[in-house]
Design a protein around this nucleic acid. Structure first.
Lengths: 357, 357
DNA sequence: ATGAAAGCGCTAACAT
DNA sequence: ATGTTAGCGCTTTCAT
């Protein structure tokens, strides 16, 4: 690896000053065409590439926005299925990148390490003009400090917990609305009367909002529910979902006519357990999820769920950042709620849509 | 947005020199514990975050690796399906990021803009310690120049064309082997005798290698094929695939007993066209693809195809880069070929595997 | 263990 | 239209 040429090398070779070289890259029109050509030629011959670091340092801007996301451990999915299971973070990344590209920004992504997110923010923050953070990724305190220096937008993904710093921009999805609509569908269109909600132990805002939507729908339909979910799970995994289904089946009294899960993973786990027990979905019991992960389409019966627009969330995050960047961060904090949509599939008794061709 | 505090601010507040502040962040052990605490405290109070740019400039390294990928236009998939369709680039990104994380690197991603990739490399190269490039993303010439200054690894994704710069590290998948194995399966296990290969007009190395694998299998099985694919397509899209199927159905003579497509998209298009014509897959004709995109599982019949390990490719890319970086780029260029695996599904007459639960 | 000072490669006034 | 000259915020010898 040879030492990289600098503006000085190019300038000397082209017989101009370094300022001219700089101009050729920043404002080509401010340089006479013939001069520009000479500079460009010299640069090409030398293999010159402007140092992003030096530029960033001198101009106080990088042309890069960032994303911090949690270390999702290894995807719960079997390795076989590795590339089918698209994680939230992947979708958000895609959305952010796409929008960033349109605005001429590149995207820097970094996940917290399993151990601690120590230094994650610092690492990213030091190299970008602004960034998005998936909730629960970094300590609130760190964000507090950094958001005074650059735009930060909080992404309330699924299963989050942190109280939001109220001066940050913030994007979330309509958890309550989605669960409400889905539940109403079960109650009104499928005549469900004894739905069981399966939530989590630690009440994250998202899961709480979903439960609220569930209860509201029940109340509206005159269906009785307690103030508590039928069950609370420690983690929202397939295993836990399967165990939840087992518990519900074995508990005394009448079997609920619908298992309403707080996410898709657990619902899929339940599907498996119910099949093992020889129970039919949706005939014996309806099962629904939340999130709309790809797997929800693949399972049989296909899972009725609430789809979250994660790609869109990424795009919105970028748009928000770019706007802040061009307005120097002025203006009130924005809080945006993205709409969700209910996917009515076979697990609630709706006709399954044909796979897209 | 307040002006960001610098080492000077922290140093002053902590009553030390800027060198000490710097040491606290780079080599904490070289600073007395009490001093370190004072510095850290001052930093916290001030909301100090080290400037990645300044660090990079002074130390000539960024702790970031990059990825340049092509602008895949908007995904062919319907918007509805947006989050189900995981692109290659997404998978490579995931793989690279995962591995990068393990080595303490962050990942900078940037796609070429539709128009031209002008400046893409420069933009990325200026901000990273090394990077990967998906084939056909940037002009060979630019890479030539840059690879003299930092590690660059070429990712021969699907449908590529550029001749490889032979001094770059390079990762590709076993296209020929995969197509060979798939074809042999059709010939030997399903008794196919008149397979038709559908390739592309511009012979990219990947597609060429696949065709070579196809021919080899045919030769071995004593099945006659020409030196040319039955059909060459302009673009590997679903539309083109559907048109190809139509052409093959309408051409005089016996219908081929298998359509062997160069990728999944086209195969899926063919599936649709065949269904429209009332032909049964695999009874009337077998259809196979190549790539193993998620959609290939979702269609009915599920598509038999060759799965490419794109996530793995991303991981390998990072590993290669990291190795080069720690060895200062010494050593011969590496060229790695990743194994692929055949997914036998319904479209060739194999029992369809139950969707993963 | 800590400090002083010289850059790192560029941009951004300010001249000319 | 082009050149001069300070920095930008850090790391890195070299001293102490």
């Amino acid at each position: 690896m040879t030492a990289a040429p600098t503006v000085y090398d190019v300038a000397e070779r082209a017989g101009v000053s370094i300022a001219t070289v700089s101009r050729v890259y920043r404002t080509p029109d401010s340089v006479r065409a013939s001069t520009r050509e000479r500079v460009l030629a010299a640069a090409r011959e030398l293999g010159y590439v402007p140092s992003g670091n030096a530029r960033g340092l001198a101009s106080r801007s990088t042309g890069v926005i960032g994303l911090c996301f949690p270390d999702y451990g290894d995807p719960a999915a079997d390795t076989e299925d590795d590339d089918t299971a698209m994680l939230y973070s992947d979708q958000i990344i895609r959305g952010m990148e796409r929008a960033a590209r349109r605005h001429g920004y590149a995207l820097l992504i970094a996940a917290s390490l399993k151990g601690g997110a120590a230094g994650l923010v610092a690492k990213v923050a030091g190299r970008v003009d602004g960034f998005a953070v998936m909730a629960r990724t970094v300590p609130t305190e760190e964000l507090e400090v950094i958001s005074r220096r650059m735009p930060v937008v909080m992404l309330a993904g699924p299963r989050e917990g942190t109280a939001f710093l109220d001066h940050l921009d913030h994007i979330e999805v309509a958890n309550e609305d989605g669960q409400h609509e889905l539940t109403r569908h079960l109650l009104v269109d499928h005549g469900v009367r004894r739905p069981a909600y399966i939530g989590t132990i630690e009440q994250s805002p998202d899961v709480q909002a979903r439960f609220d939507g569930f209860r509201l729908a029940c109340r509206e339909a005159g269906v009785e529910t307690g103030d508590e979910p039928a069950l609370r799970l420690g983690r929202l995994t397939q295993e836990e979902g399967a165990r939840a289904a087992a518990r519900l089946c074995e508990s005394p009294g009448e079997l609920p006519d619908a298992f309403v899960f707080a996410n898709d993973q657990t619902a899929v786990g339940a599907l498996r357990e119910l099949e093992r027990r020889g129970l039919s979905v949706p005939d014996d019991v309806i099962v629904t999820g939340f999130d709309g992960i790809p797997l929800s389409r693949l399972v049989r019966p296909a899972l009725t769920t609430v789809r979250q627009p994660m790609v869109r969330m990424g795009e919105e995050a970028t748009e928000l950042l770019v706007r802040r960047l061009s307005s120097k961060g002025e203006g009130e904090p924005v809080s945006r709620v993205l709409p969700v949509s209910v996917a009515r599939r076979a697990s609630c008794g709706c006709t399954e849509t044909t796979p897209t061709l």
